[in-house]
Design a protein around this nucleic acid. Structure first.
Length: 739
DNA sequence: TTTTCCCACGACGGT
DNA sequence: CGTGGGAAAA
């Protein structure tokens, strides 16, 4: 009996199909990680492929970690030589070796979202761009999309530069890249872009990695974007042993440039590709799976799939509408308590939500009841202010090339070097083509900062002192020294607030981290430490979550992808929350479809029980909002749904005569009525085809088509700025404009 | 010039 | 509700 006997026919087929391109269409819970890990084992143990010839790319670190563990337990010797990592980590690792070929220094810094934002602000200021007209947020997302499509500033200009706005964005893009390079920094998107640049400019490097990675596997292929596609294509070009795995129904990263056509057109790009479908679900009960199928069936243009399971029917999917978000949280937590008393372990329960903001109330209620919990990615450890501060100190000691780090610490803790001084130093630095830190060191030559000279000298001396100190001390000693000299710790200790105490704890955690690094590493040194930790910038999620920790997990739906739990609580099932306000207002049906896929992902996380909940009334944007329950609730066939009463004295609209097994929540409050909140039909439209209309977000456009669909009108409009959009009249709130 | 405080504004998701 | 930017206060 071999390990492969436990696989089903299709899974085995996928495992044994090792040569040439292979597309695995794997539905939710169909055992795709299992197939992938067995495939790796098969390559090594049966086909005699060297572990280091295998590259497995996942989307998140969590997924990479999990795959690593499962491969480890399957493959005996040499499994640590297999590259299993995310796109970004793979790129980072390879670029650390070769990026000098692109004119960067090999100890480059990776900018996270907030670093990017600061840099963009500076760029806009330097270029004297009106941030009302070009909000940094939208400029950044524009640039990010360009990068995801592998478009350089020049490409962007050539392709879109026909109007003034895009020309300016091309200017900003160009300047932003220039500044990144001067800082010897890459942003997240750059990691991928520079990697492709590297391979295209250096065929010999590419070939080296082609020979190295003869067998390539890509997980979550439906979420890859164009650069990632290019990257994979380049790497796989020589041997063509490329296996991609995905499910178009679980594509939830369109907003980040995911190109669904990568998976839909795989067979066209690789004509000799084999296609294998995994359609048996091993995870969920029939009721849960049927609910999920019912929801996703509302999307158009998907690859038709027939997911089935041999599992039991199980309980119905529970849904309850509460009065407020507090009662919702209360209800969920008391159900958790109830289940726990019935012997369900905390770690078998998870609370999922659409937006991070929703986590707070759940957290509060869990605390009140002393239920152990962990939030997956509240703020990642390395995102925290104090950690970023201290890491910046370390970076500056190692190399002063990254201006952002220097600016971050120059006045932290406060030492009387303010914005004006910083601006003048920056000007001088740009004028003389030097780094910001060099400007600080040469402050004597800048008459404008004469006033702050003494303070600047002190700062410069301090950095010098740290650098000397670091020559003959370990990293932990250096950090201790920094905390001491800067009084960083003393200040926090003096504060004595809850917040400062938690910051101090974080600092201790950083020491643990360093200690661990120094123990593990043969030759620990500051530069390698920083390079390794910059990877953690990329490390979202559960890194420090112990497997044996018995805790309720809280996370966003996006974070839950690829995970499974016996009991899933999905909160905030309300129009405007899920689907989100933005998706609804965009008038773009494809955005609703993405939300629906996200809902599908959420439902299919559950193995045994699924609890959906909503609140009638919720604080949103500082205001109380009244939201109808989510349309996705309506899309679950009622045969699989059990709607809980809410202390109702009112009539029920959807009656269920099924036994209620788990009465959860003691939510008081008004009854609900599912038909109360149906969308009002648009009634008469005050515009017709050919009219000029105005949309709140898209601006002015011409109505092309109006069709009556169900209870609403579907209107198709050609917008001057953004092109053609299809939308529902009742949401779009189009106003006729008279010319 | 720096720091503090207050008001306006803006919201999804994550490598 | 939280953050960020700008004006008043030190």
């Amino acid at each position: 009996m071999s390990i492969y006997d436990t696989l089903n026919k299709e899974q085995r087929e996928a495992v044994f199909c090792t040569e040439g391109p292979l597309l695995m269409l794997a539905g939710a819970g169909s055992g795709k990680t299992r197939s992938l890990t067995h495939r790796i084992a098969y390559l090594i143990e049966e086909k005699g492929i060297a572990p280091w010839n295998i590259l497995a790319i996942t989307f998140t670190n969590k997924a990479a970690q999990e795959m690593r563990e499962r491969v480890d337990s399957l493959v005996g010797y040499g499994s640590e030589d297999i590259w299993i990592s995310t796109f970004h980590a793979t790129c980072s690792r390879i670029l650390r070796r070769h990026i000098d070929l692109l004119g960067y220094d090999r100890n480059f810094t990776i900018y996270d979202a907030s670093d990017q934002k600061s840099l963009m602000k500076e760029v806009l200021k330097e270029m004297k761009i009106d941030t009302k007209q070009f909000p940094e947020r939208s400029v950044m997302s524009e640039i990010s999309s360009a990068k995801n499509e592998y478009k350089s500033p020049l490409d962007y200009r050539n392709e879109y530069g026909s109007n003034y706005r895009n020309q300016r964005i091309a200017d900003i893009y160009e300047c932003y890249q220039k500044r990144l390079k001067e800082n010897n920094a890459l942003d997240f998107d750059d990691l991928l872009v520079k990697m492709v640049d590297l391979f295209q400019a250096n065929p010999e490097v590419l070939e080296h990695y082609q020979d190295r990675f003869r067998y390539i596997m890509v997980d979550e292929y439906q979420d890859t974007n164009t650069v990632q596609f290019l990257l994979v294509s380049l790497l796989a070009k020589k041997y063509c042993n490329l296996c991609v795995v995905g499910d178009d129904d679980q594509s939830i990263y369109k907003f980040r440039g995911a190109n669904i056509y990568n998976i839909l057109n795989f067979e066209k790009v690789f004509p000799d590709a084999q296609v294998i479908r995994l359609e048996q679900n091993y995870r969920s009960t029939q009721n849960i799976l049927n609910a999920a199928n019912g929801v996703i069936a509302n999307n158009k243009g998907r690859k038709e799939k027939k997911l089935w399971t041999e599992n039991q029917k199980g309980e119905l999917v529970h849904f309850k509408q509460y009065d407020t978000e507090y009662e919702e949280a209360e209800g969920v937590v008391s159900t958790i308590n109830f289940l726990s008393m019935r012997g369900v372990e905390y770690k078998d329960m998870a609370i999922l939500y659409r937006t991070n903001a929703q986590s707070r109330i759940f957290e509060e209620k869990l605390k009140q009841r002393n239920i152990p919990y962990a939030i997956v990615r509240g703020i990642s450890f390395y995102d925290r202010k104090e950690i970023k501060d201290l890491m910046s100190y370390l970076k500056v000691v190692d190399s002063g090339m990254d201006d952002l780090s220097v600016k971050r610490i120059i006045n932290v803790p406060k030492r009387g070097i303010g914005q004006t001084t910083i601006n003048r130093l920056q000007e001088f630095a740009i004028m003389n083509q030097m780094s910001f830190l060099d400007a600080v060191f040469n402050a004597d030559e800048i008459p404008e900062v004469a006033r702050a000279l003494a303070k600047l000298h002190k700062f410069a001396d301090m950095i010098e002192n740290f650098r000397n100190y670091s020559m003959e001390h370990e990293i932990s000693e250096l950090l201790e020294h920094i905390l001491d000299v800067t009084q960083y710790r003393a200040e926090l200790e003096a504060e004595g607030t809850d917040e400062s105490i938690s910051r101090l704890e974080d600092i201790e955690e950083l020491f643990n981290d360093i200690a661990y690094y120094e123990e593990e590493e043969e030759n620990p040194n500051l530069r390698d430490f920083l390079a390794e930790k910059d990877m953690y910038t990329l490390n979202a999620g559960i890194d420090n979550l112990e497997e044996e920790d018995n805790k309720v997990l809280l996370m966003t739906l996006h974070n839950a992808k690829g995970l499974e739990f016996n009991n899933v609580f999905l909160g905030g099932m309300e129009e405007g929350v899920f689907p989100g306000y933005g998706a609804m207002m965009s008038g773009d049906e494809s955005e609703i479809e993405e939300e629906r896929r996200l809902c599908y992902v959420g439902i299919t996380r559950a193995k045994e029980r699924l609890f959906l909940s909503s609140a009638k009334r919720r604080m949103l944007r500082g205001q109380t909002q009244y939201n109808r329950h989510s349309r996705f609730i309506d899309e679950i066939p009622s045969a699989y749904l059990d709607i809980k009463k809410n202390n109702s004295t009112h009539q029920e609209v959807k009656k269920t005569d099924r036994p209620v097994k788990y009465q959860y929540g003691a939510g008081a409050g008004k009854p609900y009525n599912l038909s109360d909140f149906k969308i009002k039909p648009a009634g008469e439209l005050n515009y017709q085809v050919g009219d000029r209309v105005k949309h709140i977000k898209f601006g002015v456009g011409t109505v092309q088509e109006i069709t009556k669909g169900g209870r609403d009108y579907e209107v198709s409009v050609d917008f001057d700025r953004v092109g053609r959009k299809k939308m529902f009249a009742s949401f779009a709130k189009l106003k006729k404009v008279t010319i």
